[in-house]
């Protein structure tokens, strides 16, 4: 079951590349692998915790005000992340800047709360949070690796190819759009190829 869930989170229902959720942080922070990984872990933490809590209290919440309730739960965990990050990873906090509080409005988290956690038991919601977060983190890391190598010729802050002239464009805004366009295009290519075969 775990293997199937993993496949669902990372490949068949990949939050960024297939569902196209959470695009803002995916594009904004994928300028270096450190930022991408940091953001991925933060989102995974918030997603898992809020999934568990929402699944626990789903019977208590009246249906009409469920969205504000979900948002409060999510915002609480985001505040925890903010405080922890400020205390222990001040550099990362500065780099991610406004995108740490903006995890609250990341559509992946609210989307999973509404579509999954409010309909399944705690264990399933927990697993869903982990695999979806993992899918998000892995995709973010792939985007970050491409952009960091092309844009600043570095990986994890270390020099990569000696003598390669980096294209600064890729760590600026347009590079984010172009990178995700081509990654998505490649994914679509393989999906369509598989469909024709099957």
């Amino acid at each position: 079951m775990i293997k199937e869930e993993l496949k669902r989170g990372i490949i068949t229902e990949n939050p960024i590349l297939i569902l196209a959720l959470g695009l803002c942080p995916a594009l904004a922070v994928s300028t270096s692998l450190q930022n991408g990984l940091g953001m991925g872990i933060a989102v995974t933490f918030v997603l898992t915790c809020s999934n568990v809590i929402i699944s626990m209290i789903k019977k208590v919440i009246p249906a009409k005000v469920r969205i504000p309730c979900y948002i409060v739960v999510i915002a609480t965990f985001v505040t925890i992340v903010q405080l922890v990050m400020k205390a222990y990873f001040p550099v990362l906090d500065k780099q991610l800047g406004i995108f740490v509080p903006l995890i609250v409005v990341n559509c992946i988290i609210l989307g999973r709360a509404e579509a999954y956690a409010s309909r399944n038991n705690v264990v399933r919601a927990f697993i869903d949070g982990i695999v979806m977060g993992l899918g998000f983190t892995i995709t973010l890391c792939i985007l970050s690796i491409i952009r960091e190598i092309l844009g600043s010729n570095k990986l994890w802050g270390l020099n990569f190819f000696p003598g390669f002239q980096p294209m600064t464009l890729f760590i600026l805004a347009p590079g984010g759009f172009l990178t995700i366009a081509f990654v998505m295009g490649i994914v679509n290519y393989f999906r369509q190829k598989k469909e024709v075969k099957g």
Partner: peptide, 9 residues
């Protein structure tokens, strides 16, 4: 430090 929760509400 509560600004995230307050603003979104």
């Amino acid at each position: 430090y509560l600004y995230t929760i307050v603003f979104i509400l």
